[in-house]
Write a protein that binds this DNA or RNA. Sequence first.
DNA 1: CTGAAAGCGCTTACAG
DNA 2: CTGAAAGCGCTTACAG
Lengths: 355, 355
Amino acid sequence: MTTTSHENGRRSGTSRRPTQADVARLAGVSQTTVSLVLSGSGAAQHRVGETVRERVLRAIELTGYVANPVAQSLAGGRTSIIGVYTYEPVFPHDAGNFYYPFLEGMEDEAQRLGVDLLLFTSMAPSNRALIGGAGIRRLRVADGCVLLGRHSSPDDLAELVRLDFPFAFVGRRETPAGEVPFAGAAYEDATASIVDHLLELGHRRIALVNGYTGHESVEDRARGYRRAMSAAGLQPVTFDQGDRDAGDLLNALTSSGMTAAAVASDISGALRRTALDRGLSVPGDLSLVRLGDPEVGEEADVDWTGFLIPRMQMGAEALRIVAQRLAGDEDADAQRFISCTVVDGTTAGPLAPLA
Amino acid sequence: MTTTSHENGRRSGTSRRPTQADVARLAGVSQTTVSLVLSGSGAAQHRVGETVRERVLRAIELTGYVANPVAQSLAGGRTSIIGVYTYEPVFPHDAGNFYYPFLEGMEDEAQRLGVDLLLFTSMAPSNRALIGGAGIRRLRVADGCVLLGRHSSPDDLAELVRLDFPFAFVGRRETPAGEVPFAGAAYEDATASIVDHLLELGHRRIALVNGYTGHESVEDRARGYRRAMSAAGLQPVTFDQGDRDAGDLLNALTSSGMTAAAVASDISGALRRTALDRGLSVPGDLSLVRLGDPEVGEEADVDWTGFLIPRMQMGAEALRIVAQRLAGDEDADAQRFISCTVVDGTTAGPLAPLA
DNA sequence: CTGAAAGCGCTTACAG
DNA sequence: CTGAAAGCGCTTACAG
């Protein structure tokens, strides 16, 4: 149709956006001065004289000048872009919007911070590791980056730490390479307090049932469980899901005489279901507390006792960590735990008196 | 703790990323040649000689060079970033993930196209209009942009069209300024075919109930409705929600002797509920078809007859439009309609014989 | 086929 | 307090 100008990659003619040079010309000052006026105000800068400053400001007004973020970035300034890298698709079709609350928190915080969020959607999901590919370099488009995902790569994190790249993980992560900045859920405390709750209800034989292991968040829960049990002078009993199904796990619980269990959320639904199917009462015969949010497809009407993962706050906090690193705030703690909300539902009850 | 290098805004020392100059040095060629090798392959370019090309490629391999997108962008090249601008928060807390399917489609397509998605989250939601602010300028960080949102600004679209900026709207939009590129749902056809369905069921007195009006998508549905009615030689009867509640609308329908209604999805739930509350049978006394997806909080167990909005495909297609414009494909249609899936549920039935 | 040069719009030492 | 200059890492005419 009409002749387009975007083909040659540069917008020509008609409506070129004003630059600092245009503003400078109009104000009768140098381009440098315009730049100084714009960036100045904060630090102990050059401090352009009031008269000149006013003049520049007026010229900016008249021309409608707005800084070109790309040029700012190249010149060593900031892009005002913070990247978001996920180890799984951000918008999964089947995982029930797992990331949604994280992103919700990030969007909110991004607006507050005045940054845009760059979703790294170009890398193939089959190989989400950053190192070895164009990945890590690509992150540099942004000032910093928030990473998240259940299947993160320890090597990536190690490399990011080594490069001193301004990033933060959503969820606690460890690497021998050094401190990984993160905004994690306070699983240890949450688990300890929910186990305390079981103790208060009179339970003594309380087991921990782990889901898939080897993950920091699983370790954190286990630590909280052991802490609460030790404090009560009780012996911790842990069952790992491994390749056992809910039936096997239930057998293990009953045959060892457990009256309550703190259960990973990825198995809690099936465990409760199985218990009911076998004619057990929950919490009558067995009290169950869930260590996390409901899983996808889980019965929505069950009023679980347990805790909730503060996903929104984790997303927002991770962004804040990155922003503070970018602001040069060295004192800010780069590893932060956010409290989980404990919910007193109906799946845990007082220890039934021996019949 | 350790001395950080990101404070000064430029990464110094230790691990500076290789640039084209570094590659050139290693390959013993000019920086220009490196650039040519990288960009070349496509068009009828300079075509660097095979030997030199090989040498450069090897040097790229050795250095691990990856182009700096910011520099590319400033120099008039491509960023491989496509922006996403929404007129409401992308991740709303209460609107039931309205945008989710759009984003899902976009993410998928972005991966296919090899582009990253930049969410413009920095602008305040109180003033989501692009023009007049730093908005439009900011969009330029990306190669192009997909816009979406129910409350889009016609002025923004006009300006974008005027600037010949490579963009596409998710949903049909109009402006006197020219053709707005879009990926829209084929509401007209979908509505016509669902009204045809009612006609086949024997209905003759079929009304259209609009939700909030003045929107392109409402006009499209109305056009489809009128088309189907005209083709059947029937008189169209339209009710606008305006400030009437579901009770008022139901009164209007019954007092005018309607046996069926094609209803905007934002009122369909309340209308059905009200009908049932008044002892009417749906579809026994009144057949209802829904013109769109379920609203937030709507009863999930109702099996609506109606059509579904192809959100995922719309998101993907909008991205494709932008990509094709960027590729210089002038023949590609910039205004595309995507078919809606028609669902044969249980809220519409045959016209009851007169008692 | 290859390279030297200009320029994209900024920021930041470095001089006055 | 203000400006001339260099440079960020690229792309793209323009010469050889």
